[in-house]
Design a protein around this nucleic acid. Structure first.
Lengths: 299, 299
DNA sequence: ACGGATCTGCGCACTCATGCACAGTTGTCG
DNA sequence: CGACAACTGTGCATGAGTGCGCAGATCCGT
């Protein structure tokens, strides 16, 4: 740009992203440009503002006092741009384009990928992006358009939340395992092998339930994924806490109370997007799929 | 830009400016780029948003329904950027750079331009931009850093306001005119020639005072500038309502009550800028200048 | 202590967005 | 009715901004 008056709004975006990621390269990755460019934009912004925004600390960029006093406003702008973009997408009346649906890996792999297939034929121009894994993608930041969540009802004010069913959890083991380790009762865990969780699964409701209810069993394996736990149980490693549907689907035997406990499942969408045709189409398809699969829900 | 994710913030700026100015060329002028560029940026934004933002109406760009529903957020972003920039300028501790001081033409020409000269020597790196004329430059939008205002006390919440004096207005005429048209008393306007106002001066407090108080005199000339009125009176056209100082400086004779009425003069600055050294320097210089010139203030 | 991974920052080659000139249109004023 | 001014949009030449490769620095884990 030659002689443009006022400051470059794009540079503020770079500022916000670098402040969040901490490095030029990571910021570049997020934005879709080379790290070098990010460095140059930041330099330009600092020159324009006549203030040093970051300390170059060798391992990345750290906000200076000046930068810190501005980052809050920059984040507000970032949120404002996202809001505007979301609003704008409401004016696209066609059922076409991309919709991002976030869900747990389990839900995505074992249920949605198959049950949402009718969408493909009903709306050929609709591109469904099924993002799974990252537990809590932020709908406010539009990391996803819709999300399937389990547990407590989401309470964010500007979200539209619909309960689509409940998921039953239970303890499962293979016939082979149970032959070698007869199940003697719900409080008799001594001598039993357990498949536990690690990573963030340990902090989940499933992980906590295991901690609270199973005492005395030996943890022979730790996994960070319910499906891996299911496969391990099927392989005879031991007892796993699984969505009932996952357990039954693998021919496992349930032990103890049925269900051990239950979770609610919620479909969540930002209110600005709820009325957008293509988002609505996915929303309805998920509702329909869960209605068909009711009683067989999983996390 | 190659394959950048997310939308270009700069384009939102173009959107806001085009919506305000109504044409590509005017928007380009304001931003400092060619009109063609603005057109291309808008086209890119519309493509990215998959929504038509403007109707091309032949005479300029008019917001569509979609554009209208977004413009408010874009303006909010625009304000946010301005706020951020203002905050950022507070981190520049040097008394250097540019400060924009807004004032009426009269004040600028007859008073500030001369009386603020000491600033030049006290702070060699300070560049004073004296913008006069446009009656109400918006401090919130940072069209100016400081402003001298007359009349009612500005009440905007985030402004720092200091009264720097009062301005006395009076009726003046040249000796030559008065010889031909002897002044017979304050209510005897028949046969007198009056210099009136047009344009937005007519709506000002001075214009209204003339309407309310002088009846029966013949308006022989209309001007949109107090200084022009002063020069006209000096040339013998007739009676003019002038800041007393302007009248006396030209050797005119005052008639009627002295003063005819008075106005307060306020120095106004945004609170974020009040503590910025270079702005503070100008602020203090204006205070000092008005203190020196007290009793001789003008609009 | 050492190799590997990750980061910043510089130089160079390239490409794409920009400015400019011009044509076509519309609105305005005398 | 004609001259003029202002605006949009197209084609083309140009240069500013970009990506890439590489060097140097720093950190981490073995």
């Amino acid at each position: 740009m030659h002689d443009v008056k006022g400051l470059a709004w794009d540079d503020l975006r770079y500022f916000a992203v670098v402040a969040r990621t901490g490095t030029l390269t990571a910021a570049g990755r997020e934005i879709g440009v080379a790290g070098t460019t990010v460095g140059r934009r930041i330099a330009a912004l600092e020159k324009r503002l006549r203030a040093r925004l970051f300390d170059r600390t060798g391992d990345g960029f750290a906000l200076t006092a000046a930068g810190g006093s501005l980052i809050e406003q920059a984040r507000a702008l970032e949120q404002g741009v996202i809001d505007l973009e979301r609003r704008a997408s409401g004016h696209d009346a066609r059922i076409a384009g991309t919709v991002r649906l976030a869900a747990s890996d389990t839900f995505a792999i074992e249920f949605l990928a198959r049950e949402l297939a009718p969408l493909r034929h009903a709306h050929p121009d609709l591109e469904l992006e099924l993002v799974s894994g990252q537990s809590s993608l932020n709908l406010m930041k539009r990391e996803a358009d819709l999300a399937l969540r389990t547990g407590a009802k989401p309470t964010q004010p500007s979200l539209v939340v619909k309960r689509v069913g409940g998921v039953a959890l239970g303890l499962f083991a293979s016939a082979a395992y149970l032959k070698k380790h007869p199940f003697r009762g719900y409080e008799m865990w001594k001598g039993q092998d357990l498949i536990g969780f690690d990573g963030e699964m340990q902090q989940s409701s499933a992980g906590k339930w295991l901690d609270d209810n199973i005492r005395g069993a030996r943890v022979v394996m730790r996994v960070n994924h319910l499906i891996v736990a299911g496969e391990a149980a099927a392989g005879g490693w031991g007892i796993a806490l699984l969505p009932s549907w996952v357990g039954r689907r693998r021919g496992l035997h349930q032990i103890g109370p049925d269900p051990a406990y239950t979770n609610d499942v919620w479909l969540v969408v930002h209110e600005d997007l709820a009325r957008v045709p293509r988002v609505r189409a996915v929303f309805d398809a998920v509702i329909a799929a869960t209605r068909r699969g009711l009683g067989t829900l999983l996390i």
